[in-house]
Amino acid sequence: MTRIITTYGQLLAVAMGQTLLLALYGLFFACIIGMIVGIMSVVSSRACRFIAAVFVNLIRGVPMIVLAYFIFFGVPYLWNTILGIGGMTLTALQAGSICLALNCGAYMAEIIRAGIESVDVGQMEAARSLGLPWWRSMVRVVLPQAIRTMIPSIINQFIITLKDTSILSVIGFPELVNTAKNVVAATFMSFQTWAIVGAMYLVVILLLQWAAKALERRLKYGA
């Protein structure tokens, strides 16, 4: 155990950094996608709602590992070979971020839609009755209330996405699981290595949960 830590500790720490970087990129774009698609699924336009529903169901219906292979290998192949345009290269980080963003974005969209729908319609009606346009009513009145109820689900989704980065070891991104595999291959100490890796994930996720609790407390109204 101590040999793993002294010899490979730094390597694993760097890999954890890569995992967090990937998760951060993924989550950042997932939030944007989730917000856009989530709002698209509550507007009055049927076309918008349809597009949003197709996106969410498509992503939810495909395992993330398939999505990862598709984006990393399939899309450049389509672009360069089938369409013959050429010149497209995706790094594992880019492909991985897109994959996480799409996957997490679809779930975020559902969380955001449900959050918006959980706010009493009277709130929107009151804002509209004062002459506020739909969009302003959304931003000033409905979303702030929706986000408050959504925070536990969003944190949960963040944690799932953080763990899902491990799936992206299959496209060769040097995140924690990929690196740990190399350590095991070099040392044969699978028990020690995977125990350490598990503990590393656990610590990060506990920290995230703790930060989330603090945030939730701060967002209580009129406290």
């Binding site: 009277g122 009755s129 004062l130």
Partner: peptide, 29 residues
Amino acid sequence: NKVRERVGMVFQHFNLFNNMNVLRNLMLA
């Protein structure tokens, strides 16, 4: 929206904006 600015409405269930204090409820629009 211009018409609604001149037509106030009061609802059975009040519909005060829960995320704002009273003063901000009044000042928002």
